[in-house]
């Protein structure tokens, strides 16, 4: 806890100052409340609507996020392993993975709606598209980053390619994989939200868009605040798993 405050004290002070400034500017009518809401109004909106916000909309977003993220992790790691073992697959698919990141999601999302309709799968597809890239690149670059000297050492003991992979490459890839995973988990949440903007009947993305249509800035910001808090929690969870998994790095 002491470490937490040491690391984030300046940020916390900055945020408190920003929130106080916002509150003052809005309450003094310097900025209209429909442009930027007063933080207290956002909190009141969340308290007043917590039941639909949490159970209905956050629940829907989390379901899309969870399915998309799990599929992206499983698919991404499998693809990274295939590319690592097969030059042909790498040459064939790595450029496609890169190109997938060049396409604007907003341009692609209507196609997902066309393919999957307004079902959960159009949102899941956007989520996968957003999070797949950092997972594949993190894992694949991690596998490839294995020090040649270590590989030679295990080969000199008669290790097979499979043994080298399980005993060396996987461990060596973990740091890079977790870096990708931390980005991917946040992107997944963003992906689910974007997916909802394009067509949904529930979810925090849908809620913020509906509130935006009503010029209800409190509602828009309420959804943003909840998404931000969830994003921070998810990021912290991955960071915690990373720390536990790579505990040996702390001794370095």
């Amino acid at each position: 806890m002491k470490n937490f405050f040491k690391t984030y004290s300046l940020f916390i002070v900055f945020m408190v100052v920003v929130l106080i400034a916002m509150e003052y500017l809005v309450q003094s009518d310097i900025i209209p409340a429909f442009i930027v809401p007063a933080p207290t109004d956002v909190v009141i909106h969340i308290i007043d609507n917590w039941r639909p916000l949490i159970f209905e909309h956050l629940g829907a977003t989390m379901l899309e996020f969870a399915i998309g993220f799990i599929l992206a992790v499983v698919g991404g790691v499998c693809l990274a392993v295939c590319m690592f073992f097969s030059k042909t697959i790498e040459k064939m698919l790595y450029p496609a993975v890169l190109i997938s990141q060049m396409i604007p999601i907003i341009a692609l999302s209507p196609i997902f709606v066309l393919w999957f309709g307004y079902t959960i799968w159009s949102k899941v597809a956007v989520t996968i598209l957003m999070s797949f890239f950092p997972i594949v690149v993190g894992a694949y670059d991690g596998f490839k980053s294995t020090d040649k000297d270590y590989i030679e050492l295990l080969r000199s003991m008669g290790a097979s390619k499979r043994q080298i992979f399980t005993k060396l490459n996987i461990q060596m890839a973990l740091a890079s994989f977790f870096s990708g995973l931390k980005i991917a988990i946040v992107y997944s949440l963003v992906g689910a939200t974007i997916g909802e903007w394009l067509g949904a009947s529930e979810g925090l993305g849908y809620y913020s868009r509906r509130m935006s249509g009503d010029l209800n800035a409190d509602g828009v910001f309420a959804a943003i605040v909840i998404l931000t808090i969830v994003g921070i929690i998810l990021f912290a969870l991955v960071a915690m798993v990373e720390k536990r998994t790579l505990r040996w790095k702390e001794t370095e």
Partner: peptide
């Protein structure tokens, strides 16, 4: 074979490093 650098696997304990030959 013992190369120039010790190349102990940093995530393995001393015991696990020694046992790697038997695992392979």
């Amino acid at each position: 074979y013992m190369p120039q650098k010790d190349l102990l696997l940093p995530w393995r304990t001393v015991m696990d490093n020694i046992m790697i030959g038997a695992e392979i």
